[in-house]
């Protein structure tokens, strides 16, 4: 039922237009650019824009009750408390999106006739992502932070994840293409949990660490399994 890569009438390459391509190349070689320079001009203009740009937004002040800020600031040591809250917000948002990525992946796997044991594993991973979201939510609440707010890093992670979502929800993509996209998310997720554990520890929040370490172990299982499935989908032997 899967739709593996096949050869066909792909028209995008220069070789597919043996008459047009030499004409196009000749024109591009004969007609000089109207503006001298190189991609350097673009880089310089970007630098100028970076220097004057405002950040995407701010980390919300924990709690709406007067005095909450002080309480939280006292709780978090070593680091700017905003950094931990920002990254907790990111993890929460990422895991929440992760649930939706697995929802779409399960639908695809079912449609493509993947075996029941694989569907069960996908469902298990999906439920673990939901459970990770809960872990982060509890951690944020323990600090008086608002788990419903979108922190700057949560927002930016959402932008990064859009491509993954587009690939998995496209009905035309096959198992290997969708697994590849999911692998991108899981690789990021693994690195992010690893970082968050260190961040929590350095911020004096060691009570969060066991819970986060358990999440990381589960994410490592997701990642390892996806790597194997991707190889299987492409017919590559697992080493």
């Amino acid at each position: 039922m899967d739709k593996p890569a096949h050869t066909g009438m792909n028209r995008t390459g220069a070789q597919m237009s043996p008459l047009h391509t030499p004409e196009q190349k000749a024109a591009a070689e004969q007609v000089r650019p109207t503006v001298p320079g190189s991609a350097r001009q673009l880089a310089e203009a970007r630098q100028e824009a970076v220097a004057s740009a405002e950040p995407v937004g701010s980390v919300p002040i924990p709690g709406s009750i007067k005095g909450a800020v002080k309480t939280v600031a006292q709780k978090i040591s070593g680091h700017n408390p905003a950094i931990l809250i920002d990254k907790l917000g990111e993890r929460l948002a990422f895991e929440r999106t992760g649930v939706r990525l697995y929802d779409a992946m399960i639908a695809k796997a079912q449609a493509l006739g993947e075996p029941q044991d694989k569907l069960d594993r996908l469902q298990h991973f999906r439920d673990e992502e939901a459970e990770h979201m809960e872990r982060v939510k509890e951690a944020m609440e323990s600090l008086g932070a608002d788990p419903t707010a979108q922190t700057p890093s949560a927002d930016v992670a959402g932008v990064s994840g859009l491509g993954v979502l587009q690939v998995i929800t496209d009905p035309r993509t096959n198992m290997a293409q969708s697994l590849d996209a999911l692998l991108t998310a899981e690789l990021t997720d693994n690195a992010a949990w690893d970082l968050l554990i260190d961040l929590a520890r350095e911020a004096g929040q060691s009570d969060m660490v066991p819970s986060f370490e358990q999440a990381l172990r589960q994410e490592q299982d997701h990642l390892g399994t996806l790597r194997i499935w991707l190889r299987e989908a492409l017919g590559v032997k697992n080493s």
Binding site: A14, A28, V35, A45
Partner: peptide, 19 residues
């Protein structure tokens, strides 16, 4: 204050497979 079309295309010549 600058011309965007000039900045993005400075010295650009198309080549198959990108510059």
């Amino acid at each position: 204050q600058g011309i965007p079309a000039d900045i993005v295309s400075a010295g650009y010549s198309w080549h198959p497979g990108t510059e």
